[in-house]
Write a protein that binds this DNA or RNA. Structure first.
Ligand SMILES: [Mn+2]
Ligand SMILES: [Mn+2]
Ligand SMILES: [Zn+2]
Ligand SMILES: [Zn+2]
Lengths: 140, 140
DNA sequence: AAATATCTTAGAACCATTCTAAGATATTGA
DNA sequence: TCAATATCTTAGAATGGTTCTAAGATATTT
């Protein structure tokens, strides 16, 4: 879609985030958001960028992912120590985590209800409720 | 309790796990399990051991925590990238995570019901459902 | 007690992530 | 249109939690 102005959407995303439309950010926007919902690690996105002939350093990948997260364009998901996933789906939802493939699968937030949670500890307020359903593939 | 045979409980735990009752493991058992439910990092347990005059290397702390986890005496909880918590509460339960204090608080599993989860992806089976309620302390 | 199996450890290695600071690029506004 | 200024990118070093290595120590078995 929108083949005539391929960067129009990326541009408007960057404007929303008050980030200058650099070559690197525009390219990363397209990689991240043109392909539906994704859960990527910094390393994976870096490889993908290099494979697509987008020259960008790993430092910039990290900078960009964090800037996008602060701007609400991405969400961080932690399911395993030492690996951070960035999620292009920022709506309220949960995850299956396929342990032996290190892969996340979205669970629509609309269906899921978490009932019976006690009040937050004194003086604390809830910022997010994350449900992670760990699953093992049959082949092990 | 059981002041006359202070290592009896630790010994039986190690037997259950088929681990030799070394000085280090016995001491770590006591530190971990004599004080009710705890969520410790390797570094924190190491400091605690040194403070209690238990000479033990960080490598042994990691070895022991993983062996105890494999034996079902501990459970790993991941809430933040780059930090692993070991939980002495191995019953079915969930967690508040107080983000600005990096502290975990148990939520009894009996009260909480997660409803509306879809089937696991084809060929996968659920190994665990983790609910993490992220909270912020009021003072920020 | 000797033989064997297992354990502990210091230090190096590892790996994801962050930092640094110098050169590049984008924006502003004269 | 073109400085002047603000922001961005980057290579390489640093960081911090964790794992590995391999050699000496300890526990168990015979
Ligand atoms: Mn982050
Ligand atoms: Mn582990
Ligand atoms: Zn998601
Ligand atoms: Zn717990």
């Amino acid at each position: 879609m929108n083949n005539e102005r391929p960067y129009a959407e990326a541009l408007s995303r960057l404007r929303t985030a008050s980030l200058r439309p650099t070559r690197q950010r525009l390219a990363l926007c397209k990689l991240l958001f043109d392909a539906g919902d994704r859960h990527v690690t910094a390393e994976a996105l870096h490889s993908e960028a290099l494979a697509a002939d987008v020259r960008v350093s790993l430092a910039t990948i990290y900078n960009t992912l964090h800037q996008f997260t602060e701007a609400g364009l991405l969400r961080e998901v932690v399911v395993e120590s030492g690996k951070t996933y960035f999620d292009t789906n920022t709506s309220d939802h949960h995850h299956f985590y396929v342990e032996d493939e290190c892969r996340l699968v979205d669970i629509d937030g609309g269906q899921v209800k978490v009932q019976g949670l006690p009040d937050a500890p004194a003086g604390a307020e809830i910022s997010r409720v994350d449900v992670v359903v760990r699953v093992r593939s049959a082949g092990d």
